[in-house]
Design a protein around this nucleic acid. Structure first.
Lengths: 236, 236
DNA sequence: CGCCTGTTTGAGAGTGTTCAAAACAAGTGG
DNA sequence: CCACTTGTTTTGAACACTCTCAAACAGGCG
C-alpha cells in the first residue's frame, strides 16, 4: 500500500488540507499515509474507542453519529471527498463514523499526522480553518434542529442537497427543473433532521402534492419550483 | 487603554490561548490588545456584520445566538472567562454575540491577531484544539436538541450547571445538597435547550415535586438528589 | 413467485406549544 | 411604609404537531 506515488495519484489532493504541504515537501506525507477501502455500512471509528487515526476522505460519503445511552441516534455531520476525518489531539473518539456509500480513505497514524502538523504550520492552519467552518455548520444545524418545523427542515434539506448536486456537475439551468438522486435514504434523512422516517416521508408527499417537487421513483427527485422550495425553508 | 501591563495583570492569562506566546515573547500580544468593558445585554458582534475583532473573554458570560429569518432564536454556544471570542479568517460573523452579564474582553484587531497566529505556531495550535473541543460540544448538543425529551434536556442542563458551579469554587461535598445560583433566566435556559419558557418552568416544578431539587427563591437552586437528577439526564 | 427492504399511508396518542392569567420579585416614588 | 410599575416565573386549558404503532405498497433479487 505504501509508496511514493500515493499522493501524486490523489484525485482530491489540492482540495484537502495536504495541499500546502505537497507544494513544499511531498515526502512528509507520502511516507506515512496509506489508502484504505471501506464498504457501505462499515464503521471506521467507534465512539469511545481510542482515537487512533486521522485521514482524508478520497471518495464516498461518511456519517458522523452521536448516540444516547439508550440507543437513540442523531447524525451530527456528513463527510464528503477531500474532507478531513478524525480527531487530532483527542484521547477517545466522540462520535461513530460510518460509511454511507463505499468509500476510500487516505489514513495517517495519528501521532505521525500530528508531527506533520507541527512541522508544517500551513497545514495546521488549513485544518484550523476547516474546523472553524465545521463548527459554523454544526451551530447553524443546531438552529434547524431546535427551532424549525418538520416542513422547514425537509425543505431546507432539499435546498442544501440541490446546491450540492448542482456544484458536483449537475446541470444548473436556472429555470429548468433539476433532477438528481438523493444520496440518502428516508431513514438517514430523518437521522440528520431529528425526525422520524414517517414524518420525512409525509413532508415529501406534501411537497409533491403542492407541485414543488416530483418523485419519479427510486431516490430520484425533481425540483419543479425551487423558489417555492426555498420559501418553505426560511431558516436555511 | 494600551499599555505594557495589560498582560501581566491578566487574571486568566494562563487559561487563554495566549499562554504559549507569553512564555516566549509577551510583547507580541501586549501591543495589540486592549481591554473593553461590556454591559449586560450589550451585543458585541452582530451576525452578518464584518468579522472585525478577535478577543479573549476576561470575565462574565457571553451567548452566541443564531436567528431564523423570522426571528426565532437559538443559543448555539456560551462563552466563559478565558474562552476565545470571534472568528479568525471569516469574512462576516455568523452569529450574534451578546453579554449575559457584565463582561470584560481583551480585544485584538483581527488582522493583527492573525499575524500573531502566523508567527506563533503554538498559539495557533491552542486555538485549533479549542475549536475542535467547541465542535465536539456543539455536536453533542445537536443530539440533545434533536433526540431528548424536555425532561431530559432540563435535567441534563442542571447536571452541566452543577458541575460548572462545582468547578468554580462551589463546595462539592459528595452527599450534602449543593446550592448555587443559576446564571441564566428561564428564558435563556429555554433558548439553550430549544424549548419555551413555560416548558422549562414546568420541568423545574416537576423536579421540585419529585424532591430532586429545591428552589429557595431568586435564581438559587439546591440539588437534593444528584443521582436522581443524573438518571433523568440519560443523554448527557 | 415469494421474500426482503424501504417507502407510503392511516389512525390514535403523547408531548410541547400557544395563549391567557395569576403569582411573585424587585425597584421607584409618593 | 405602602402603592405602583416592570419584569420574571408559575400555572392552567386548549390546540397543534410529531411520534408511535400498524398495515399496505413498491421495487429488487434469489
Amino acid at each position: 500500500m505504501l509508496g511514493t506515488t500515493i499522493c501524486s495519484d490523489c484525485t482530491v489532493r489540492d482540495a484537502t488540507i495536504c495541499g500546502s504541504v505537497m507544494n513544499n515537501e511531498p515526502s512528509a506525507l507520502e511516507n506515512i499515509g496509506h489508502k484504505k477501502s471501506i464498504n457501505r455500512g462499515e464503521t471506521v471509528i467507534w465512539a469511545g474507542d481510542e482515537s487512533i487515526i486521522c485521514a482524508n476522505l478520497l471518495s464516498g460519503v461518511l456519517k458522523l453519529v452521536a448516540y444516547t445511552a439508550d440507543g437513540r441516534e442523531q447524525i451530527v455531520g456528513l463527510l464528503y471527498p477531500a474532507d478531513f476525518v478524525g480527531q487530532p489531539y483527542a484521547g477517545r473518539a466522540d462520535f461513530t463514523i460510518t460509511a454511507l456509500t463505499n468509500a476510500e480513505l487516505c489514513v495517517f497514524p495519528r501521532s505521525a499526522f500530528e508531527r506533520v502538523l507541527t512541522d508544517h504550520a500551513g497545514m495546521e492552519r488549513l485544518l484550523l480553518q476547516r474546523t472553524l467552518a465545521a463548527l459554523n455548520t454544526s451551530r447553524r444545524q443546531m438552529l434547524t434542529l431546535a427551532r424549525t418545523s418538520a416542513a422547514e427542515k425537509v425543505a431546507g434539506f432539499l435546498v442544501d442537497m440541490t446546491s450540492r448536486a448542482a456544484s458536483s456537475g449537475c446541470r444548473a439551468t436556472d429555470d429548468a427543473p433539476v433532477t438528481f438522486d438523493l444520496p440518502l435514504s428516508r431513514g438517514q434523512i430523518a437521522d440528520i433532521l431529528g425526525l422520524t422516517i414517517e414524518t420525512v416521508s409525509r413532508q415529501m408527499t406534501h411537497l409533491k402534492a403542492a407541485g414543488i417537487i416530483r418523485l419519479p421513483g427510486g431516490r430520484a427527485i425533481t425540483i419543479a419550483d425551487s423558489d417555492g422550495l426555498e420559501s418553505r425553508a426560511v431558516a436555511a
